[in-house]
Design a protein around this nucleic acid. Sequence first.
RNA 1: GCCAGCGUAGCUCAGCAGGUAGAGCGGCUGAUUUGUAAUCAGCGGGUCAGGGGUUCGAAUCCCUUCGCUGGCUCCA
Length: 592
Amino acid sequence: MGLHTRMSEETNLSVDVLRHSAAHLLAQAVLDLYPETKTGIGPAVETGFYYDFLRDTPFTPEDLERIEARMKEIARSNIPVERLVLPKDEAIRMFEERKQPLKVELIREKGDATVTVYRQGPFADFCLGPHVASTGVLENVKLLSVSGAYWKGDEHGPQMQRIYGAVFATRKELEDHLRLLEEAKKRDHRRLGAEHDLFSTSDVLGAGLILWHPKGARIRAVIEQHWRERHWAGGYDILYTPHIGRATLWETSGHLGFYKDSMYSPMDIDDQPYYLKPMNCPFHIQIYKSRMRSYRDLPLRWAELGTVYRYERSGALHGLLRVRGFTQDDAHIICTPAQIEDEILRVLDFSVSILADFGFTDNKIELSVRDPKNLGKYAGSDALWRQAEASLIKALETRGYPYERMEGEAVFYGPKIDIKIKDAIGRLWQCTTIQFDFNMSERFGMTYVGEDGQEHRPYMVHRALLGSLERFFGVLIEHYNGSFPLWLAPVQTVILPIAERHEAYAKSLDDKLRAGGLRSTVDLSREKVGKKIRQAEVEKIPLILVVGDKEVERGSASLRVHGQGDKGEIAIARFLEQALAFNSQKSLIVNF
RNA sequence: GCCAGCGUAGCUCAGCAGGUAGAGCGGCUGAUUUGUAAUCAGCGGGUCAGGGGUUCGAAUCCCUUCGCUGGCUCCA
């Protein structure tokens, strides 16, 4: 079951209406229990609903229980919900009397000549609706968390308390949803990362900085190796650039102007200020500018696994998904205007194809373009933007990919395509971004000599495909729930000798598998096979080989596949051949 | 950064009225030589995140720093 069911499975109620009405129910319960509270807004959101409250004392988890209990009481008493249409001034008076200044503010801002107000019992709210007919259908409700939120999203405005909740038409749907939340918690990459010894962070080191443990590093090495092979095959060249650069570079690039808040303080080297890099582009541009470029040299496709450092506010940090130091799988495509359409299509195909290698085939694509009401704030000419946007759209349409057009979501230096990948339990994660950059090429004065012997400005496109290796790794862990497919698994095979006398055979088998190209290991603990198997299953090792008297004698092994159980005896040569085939084909499931 | 919650052994957690720390798993040692998801026994292991304060006495109360969590904002 997904998180975004539009209609309730067993009733004919719209999930959004249910959620929005539950938000009203929440506000009613809060005002019942804490009458001095000022109410803000309370919409339905993707996973449920929330309501923002302004109150001197914060809500505690115990308060939430009380509020939820009160909500259920009100729901059970099945109060009718009425829709009123009032003249604006009358509505304002109504909420002034109710001592709800935030509502008055909202009505003043948003209300037309007449406004709609929904009322249930003593509670009333300024709201467009629609709503359920009465509160009886809102009984299957659960409050989930409290957090801070700013009035109208302005961090200098008053800080409110936001209560989140979930509601469903039936008890079963609510329980299923809560189970899904539990499931998401269980496959949290931070938890799995510790359990499987993949990565850690350290208080001593500092927040938002990732330590890749041997097993995590193996996976990363496999990802990087695959990434390099695909890039070379895909017409890219690979670069390496330093981690720091002189202030001059960042002044020219404009980062010290528009990105300084995300950069760390400079360090002093021979009386010159140097900065840790927050982006790789200025370095790639220096390589571009190291000599004259002819139109015959273009397109250039330059990729780098470039580690960048960005200041993130402490509250924004989150496991591997939001960190302060990360490695982007960055690339810059530098080409002529005539090449741009082909290059965009090519990078789009390339991105989709590599995401698919990792098992992500269900993507959401967003096209971010200028805000038509504010065309002045963008770098680059109108003509450039038009051609860039057209090339992005053409690529998407050529492939028939559905996409969402996001007006005003473009960065100031160019339009972009973002690809969000959907994981095993339906959540979306931002990975790929393909962005035009009209700013950098201008600032650094990038040129090439055209057929006409004149200097021209090339197009430059930034591209991060997996996004950052840290984030991508986090998403992979959650997507596969720690059970990595064979080709990515840090340990691909484990050999379990039944007794001590089988250890020599187990070790020689291990050598053979390693020599053949598998990441293999032997469990030499003096435990019973049952224990060793359990251990291997818990560690989610894809292939388990049990060897005892029978196997030693016949030069074979007993195969057990993770999640599939005992597969019986197999000849070593056949096992190795098939395992290597699954490995090189990057099969998501193995079938011996 | 802001609001709220949290930080006890490697991990999960108990210690809920202030009286100098406890379990399970893991680890180590020994016995067992084992056939498809946990063999038995013994042992070690904690400046209770760091610092400061209140108190005769602090894991427990207060302040502060660091880190983590859920959000707000932002983003690869």
